[in-house]
Every structure is written in structure tokens, then in C-alpha cells.
Design a protein around this nucleic acid. Structure first.
Length: 622
DNA sequence: GGCCATAGCGCG
DNA sequence: AAAGCGCGCTATGGCC
């Protein structure tokens, strides 16, 4: 059963209506003055009591509604995020990029003018704007006379109809698409909760670290001592004239005066240059980066109350990876992670899926030999033994080159070896690349569709519509002065689609794992009810009511139910939990990974082992 | 003053 | 000739 919810800003509460899974109303709408209280009364507190028939909350956008609920201490097990689903379905129909808001969906349904989505909000540092129960409505100016609850219900019903139509065409494709919708929605819940918890961050440790690396900060706001010293040393190495090492143009001129002509000041270029300024410049770049991107002002802006609060954006990347707004949460330099410390009596369970993308390639392609290799703990080693004369480094280069579309360097002969032993896997990525070069679309395993080439690309590459074919790309290549020619543009597109099928599927496995983990932890027993996971997917991942947490009657004394998912970075998750709960949490992570594998790929010999460490300091993980 | 493109580097 | 994929963020530098 679903309950549709729209915020009722005027009344300060919300309007709700019960629906069946198809979107048909099960009763009249009603209004509540306090949504948090209403949800608390409806949502089962112990998810383990839910046996497949739990409530799923339907709302326009999770961030809009759930943020306020979480702030009130309310959690829900499952939801259906209308906007994220709309974006997936539009993409599936080749209508990538059309507005996804409730108002837009309603307009498409009723023949009205489709409003553009509002521009993404600016990142909000912690402490600002924390009071409101609801985020500002994402709907791009709801048209007058629109009843949002009616629109929500109707658009949801339409989405279910579109999924049913997909099922008529291909039951398996629809099964996967439903799974994707469920996982995406579960991810949205997790993103809100994660942003709410924040990543435990010790400001004192961070400041000590900064002084250790950068020297004392300038009392007047300029660069810290170590950067000033390095600037002087770099100037001296170039003959004495003052220089701003952070200015590429100045550095290039300085090298030029020294008789060295460089294409750029990139670190890897500098490493090949024999000049006394080079090591100083490399050190300067590294430290300057930390100072500007994760220095004192970053700490001041983004850390509050001992927590770093980024805003996670599920589906913010075309491949389905999450993005973040504010604070650069997905780019925290490893050295800075030393400031991430567990609370007293608590610890971190850090888990990352090693070699995820090559394992995904094995699974989606179904290449039997590669799948067997991906059943091993070290897939590169297994490949090396089987096809690269034991040369692990070469096996790794070959595999990465295949997934990224590398065409030069040492990858070329290695790729040939890969093709000889794993032709099915190679065909998979090469088919995707060919489709992209021809202007076509590719999909992930669960059915996320890549964006089409830009209109200018299509005009440039062949003059045809996207997907209409790829003839004639090579013509006139040498006549172009831009970007290496039409062939180059087509190949770039091919590299994108080649990688998309892998990266997007990896994101699907990762978010499914995360959602299953959430369900296991919420169940309290972390899914300890039997080996191999006898229960269905928990945490709202399973489509059509197959969800519900696993396990029956955990031991609350372990504190597993107090565990918090506090960080997620593509293939890595950090759980903050009481020390005594860590072993159970660690086991739950492994289980979640395995359940995600079976949910996506069924019977496959591919494994997705998680490297789990239990540490008090994130910097100590791995 | 603000806007925008580019360079560069952090992460996966 | 030869460019491996996806991002966010900060700085510079040219522009109005």
C-alpha cells in the first residue's frame, strides 16, 4: 500500500491519500496538521514486523518532504520518489532531459504547458536555513488551480502504467526497471539521512593537521607559512623574480625563460622535467590544493557541531552516481580523512567494493571465463594467471583500457591479449562504443539510459538525428580545425557510452547494496536470520512489496539499530556505530553486497567482495 | 563589480 | 599526432 503525501504549506501540515500499488485511491484524501506525527503513527517502528505489505510513501521529491521528517526524528522504510522515477522513465523512452517535476509530469499528462525544472539550488552550509519543515517546493511554479495531491496520484498512476507497458514488451526489462526505481528511491531516503547525520569531523584534529602540513595560518588571511616559503624557494630556483606558483601562465613563462618549453603545468608533465623548481612546484600544488579546498575556511564553512554536512544528490551524475552540493564531499583528500574520527564509544565500519567496475563488466557481459576470474578475491591476479603470463599489472592496464576506451600506449598489445581470452566481455564494451559512435543510446543493466549526444554533436558528426545511424563520420576529418575532427568527436562519444554501461551498472549495484544494508541495520539484527539471506531484499529495494527488513527479533543490546550510514562515495560506504555493534555491522555489509549481487545478476559466478575495516579514524581505513 | 571559460587537481 | 571514463571545486584571466 502507498500513502501519497504533499506538503500543505499554508496549513503547515500535509495532505495524504491511501493508494494501491497501481495508484488507485483506497479512500478519501485527508489533511494532517503535523506530518511528522502522522508518519510516526503510521510507519511501523520495527520494520521486521513488516512482511512484504508495508507502507510505501509516495511524494514528489524526497529531499522536499523527508528532510523535515528526519529532522523531527522520523524514519520511513520505503518510498517512491516521483521526480527521480520520472527522470528514469523519460530517459528510458529516449526523452532524456525533459523536465521531471510533478508540475511537468502533470502538464504532460493533461496537455498543459510543461514548465522547465527550476535551477539547482545553491549548496546550503550547515546552520543556514535549518528551520523549515519542508524544503522549498521543487515544482517549477505550480500552475494555479493545480491540486498537487491529485497531480501526484495521477502522475504516479501514469508511471505505473508506463512500467506495465514496459513489462508487456519485456518482463525482464521491466523487472529491472522496477528494481532501479526502487533502488533510486531508497537511495534518496539514505541521502537525506546521511546529510542529516553528517560525517563525524574533529575540527581540532583538522586544524592540527593543517598546521602540520601548511605551517601556521597567516594572521592577515594570506597563504600559510609553508606556502610562502615554497613560493620564495620556487622564485629562487627560477633566478629570483617573484612568482605566483598557482598561476599556470606565470609558471610556463618562468620555464620558458629557463629555456624549457612545456605544453602545460600539469603535475605529470612537470614530473618529466629536470629542473630544481619542479619538486618544489609539485609540493606547492599539493599543499595549495589542501589550503584552498580543505583548509581553515572550508572547516569553518562546512563543519558544524562536530559533523561535516554535505548535501547528497542521488542521480546527480548521468551514470546514476550520486553527486554532492557543497563542501566537495566526494573529493576529500586522503590525508585530510585523518580528521574523521568516531565518537567516544563508537567506531567506523568502512567498506569498499574492490575492483567493482571490472567485476561489473564480467557480470553484464556474461563472459564465462572472465566471470570465473571475477569469482576470485583478486580478479586482476586471476586474469594475469590465465591470460597474461602472471603479469598482474598488465592485466589491470588491459582491463581498465577496455572499459575506458584507451587506444594508445601500453594498453594496445594488452588489449589484444584480453580480446583473445575474453572475447565476450570485449564485444560487450565494443558494441556499446560502436553504438555511441553512431549517435545511439545505451542502457545500464537495470535500464538507466545514457543521455543523447548534444544537438551540436549530431549536426557536427553526421547531420542526422541521434540514433539514426553513423555513416559518414570519417568524411572530412582532416579538414577540421576543431577537436581533432568528426572522427574524434564520434570516438569521444564512443568512449562515453562504452564506459557508461559499466559505470552506471556499478552505481546500481552500489546503491542496491547500500539500500539493502540500510534495511538490515534497521531490522536490528542486521539480517542474522539464517545463512545466505533467506529473506527478500530489505530496505525498500525490492519492487512491489517484496521488501521489508530481514531477520526476526534482533538483539538491541548490540546497538546495531543505532548504526548510522554517514558517508558514501561511489563504491565505498562508512557506517558510524557503537563499538560493540561493529562486528555485526561488518557482517551485514558483506551480506548486503551478496544480496545486491543476486538481486541484479541472479546466478553468476562473479563476486563483489567488500574490503571491510573497523577503525576509529577514517584515515586508517584500507 | 559580475560572468564565463579554462586549467588544474582532488576523488571514484 | 593522439586525446581512458565520470564528477566538484578553486584559481586565473579575459570579458563586459
Amino acid at each position: 500500500m502507498l500513502i501519497a503525501v504533499v506538503p500543505d504549506v499554508a496549513a503547515g501540515g500535509a495532505r495524504l491519500r491511501r493508494l494501491d500499488d497501481s495508484g488507485a485511491a483506497l479512500g478519501p484524501a485527508w489533511t494532517v496538521p503535523d506530518l511528522a506525527a502522522a508518519v510516526r503513527a503510521i510507519e511501523p517502528t520495527d520494520a521486521s514486523t513488516v512482511d512484504g505489505g508495508g507502507v510505501r510513501w509516495l511524494w514528489p521529491a524526497t529531499a522536499e518532504v523527508y528532510t523535515g521528517l528526519v529532522r523531527e526524528g522520523v524514519r520511513v522504510d520505503r518510498c517512491h520518489d516521483l521526480e527521480l522515477t520520472e527522470a528514469l522513465l523519460l530517459g528510458y523512452d529516449g526523452r532524456w532531459g525533459e523536465p521531471r517535476s510533478l508540475a511537468a509530469g502533470w502538464a504532460r499528462l493533461t496537455g498543459g504547458r510543461v514548465p522547465a525544472d527550476p535551477p539547482a539550488r545553491q549548496a546550503v552550509p550547515p546552520g543556514d536555513g535549518q528551520g523549515a519543515l519542508f524544503e522549498p517546493a521543487a515544482a517549477g511554479g505550480a500552475p494555479a488551480g493545480l491540486d498537487p495531491l491529485t497531480a501526484l496520484v495521477e502522475v504516479y498512476a501514469d508511471q505505473q502504467a508506463r512500467l506495465a507497458a514496459a513489462a508487456a514488451a519485456s518482463p525482464e526489462a521491466a523487472r529491472r526497471l522496477r528494481l532501479l526505481v526502487a533502488a533510486e528511491s531508497a537511495g534518496a531516503l539514505i541521502a537525506v539521512e546521511m546529510g542529516h547525520y553528517g560525517l563525524p569531523w574533529r575540527v581540532d584534529v583538522h586544524r592540527d593537521l593543517l598546521v602540520e602540513l601548511l605551517g601556521e595560518p597567516s594572521p592577515v588571511g594570506g597563504p600559510p607559512r609553508r606556502l610562502v616559503e615554497l613560493s620564495a624557494a620556487i622564485a629562487a630556483a627560477f633566478g629570483g623574480a617573484p612568482i605566483h606558483p598557482e598561476s599556470p601562465a606565470e609558471v610556463l613563462r618562468a620555464f620558458s625563460r629557463a629555456g624549457i618549453s612545456l605544453p602545460s603545468t600539469r603535475a605529470w608533465v612537470l614530473r618529466g622535467v629536470d629542473h630544481p623548481a619542479v619538486p618544489l612546484l609539485l609540493e606547492y600544488k599539493e599543499l595549495h590544493r589542501i589550503w584552498t579546498a580543505h583548509g581553515w575556511s572550508w572547516c569553518q564553512q562546512w563543519v558544524a557541531g562536530g559533523r561535516f554536512h554535505p548535501e547528497y544528490v542521488p542521480g546527480g551524475v548521468v551514470s546514476g552516481r550520486w553527486a554532492t552540493r557543497g563542501g566537495g564531499a566526494l573529493q576529500i583528500p586522503r590525508v585530510v580523512r585523518r580528521a574523521v574520527r568516531a565518537d567516544p564509544g563508537w567506531t567506523f565500519v568502512v567498506a569498499d567494493a574492490g575492483q567493482l567496475e571490472p567485476r561489473i563488466l564480467a557480470a553484464v557481459s556474461g563472459d564465462p571465463r572472465m566471470s570465473r576470474a571475477a569469482g576470485e578475491g583478486d580478479m586482476y591476479e586471476a586474469l594475469a594467471t590465465e591470460a597474461f603470463g602472471g603479469d598482474r599489472a598488465r592485466a589491470k592496464v588491459a582491463l581498465l583500457g577496455a572499459m575506458y576506451g584507451q587506444t594508445g600506449g601500453q594498453a594496445v598489445p594488452a588489449l589484444a591479449a584480453l580480446r583473445g581470452s575474453y572475447p565476450v566481455a570485449l564485444s560487450y564494451v565494443e558494441d556499446a562504443a560502436r553504438t555511441g559512435e553512431a549517435g545511439g543510446l545505451v542502457r545500464s543493466w537495470l535500464g538507466r539510459t545514457c543521455p543523447p549526444p548534444s544537438a551540436s554533436w549530431s549536426a557536427w558528426a553526421g547531420g542526422g538525428e541521434a540514433g539514426s545511424g553513423g555513416e559518414g563520420f570519417e568524411g572530412g576529418e582532416s579538414s577540421s580545425g576543431y577537436g581533432g575532427g568528426r572522427g574524434a568527436a564520434a570516438r569521444a562519444r564512443g568512449r562515453f557510452t562504452r564506459n557508461f554501461v559499466i559505470q552506471a551498472t556499478a552505481a546500481e549495484w552500489a546503491i542496491s547494496m547500500l539500500a539493502l544494508l540500510r534495511g538490515l541495520l534497521a531490522g536490528g539484527s542486521a539480517g542474522a536470520a539464517g545463512p545466505g539471506g533467506t529473506a527478500g531484499p530489505g530496505g525498500g529495494v525490492g519492487p512491489d512489496g517484496a521488501g521489508g527488513a530481514v531477520g526476526s527479533g534482533g538483539d538491541p543490546a548490540t546497538g546495531v539499530d543505532r548504526a548510522e550510514l554517514v558517508f558514501f562515495q561511489h563504491d565505498e560506504v562508512v557506517v558510524h556505530c557503537p563499538v560493540e555493534a561493529a562486528p555485526v555491522v561488518a557482517a551485514a555489509v558483506e551480506r548486503a553486497g551478496d544480496q545486491a549481487r543476486r538481486l541484479l545478476f541472479g546466478a553468476t559466478s562473479v563476486r563483489f567482495p567488500l574490503k571491510v575495516s573497523i577503525v576509529d579514524c577514517y584515515g586508517d581505513a584500507k
